[in-house]
């Protein structure tokens, strides 16, 4: 904020604002979950079979990656609150690396699907039938949107790391780290539902 305006700092407000933003993100995905539930209701058998096409192991690995990264970012906040800036930074970097690993994994998973001619609008998918078209349409749209949020989350976390480096985020002023962490947990939260809904419910 400019030097000549009123300086006002309210961490509680920042956190409330972040939570409100998270609500909108949850509802954004909520719209997709509504679509999912209705198409699943309309095409139960096709969804059942199409779900078996997905690679459970890949999904499981990514689940574990995200759960661990969620813990490390939460620990990073604990470290910052206890004044252990170096450790906080290390944990944050681990989180970022885990996030990148998730994306790499996702890249190979999507790539394998493309190799099998499974992508939105493909003629192969069309031959499989309407249920499969919708299942994979949802799969690509929802995991794609989720991956986009991972990328945004990573950008935010890198930004936080930069702030810690510059000592603009420090043990007495760390709400930015907290908010970045909240956003990262949101990404985890969404994945917790995506994983069983796409990979597991056979």
């Amino acid at each position: 904020m400019e030097a000549n305006t009123h300086v006002h700092r309210d961490d509680v407000a920042s956190k409330l604002g972040m939570w409100l933003f998270i609500f909108t993100e949850i509802l954004l995905f909520g719209g997709m979950f509504i679509v999912y539930s209705i198409f699943r209701y309309n095409h139960p058998v096709a969804f059942h079979l199409a779900g078996e096409e997905l690679n459970d192991t890949m999904g499981l690995i990514n689940t574990i990656i995200l759960l661990v990264s969620s813990m490390t970012v939460a620990m990073s906040i604990t470290a910052m609150q206890r004044g252990q800036v170096r450790r906080s930074m290390q944990l944050l970097v681990i989180t970022i690396i885990l996030g990148l690993a998730f994306l790499v994994n996702k890249y190979f998973e999507w790539g394998a699907k493309f190799d099998h001619h499974i992508y939105p609008g493909s003629s192969f998918l069309r031959e499989l039938g309407t249920g499969d078209t919708l299942f994979f349409g949802l799969y690509f749209m929802m995991t794609g949107l989720h991956a986009l949020h991972i990328i945004v989350g990573l950008i935010i976390l890198v930004w936080v790391a930069f702030y810690i480096q510059k000592k603009r985020t420090r043990p007495d002023k760390y709400v930015f780290l907290e908010n970045g962490g909240l956003y990262w947990h949101l990404v985890d939260l969404i994945w917790i539902f995506l994983f069983p809904l796409f990979y597991l419910i056979h």
């Binding site: 969620s70 813990m71 970012v73 939460a74 962490g181 909240l182 947990h185 985890d188 939260l189 917790i192 539902f193």
Partner: peptide
């Protein structure tokens, strides 16, 4: 999700 919300978040 509840665990993540209550403790991590």
């Amino acid at each position: 999700a509840t665990l993540v919300l209550l403790y991590f978040m």
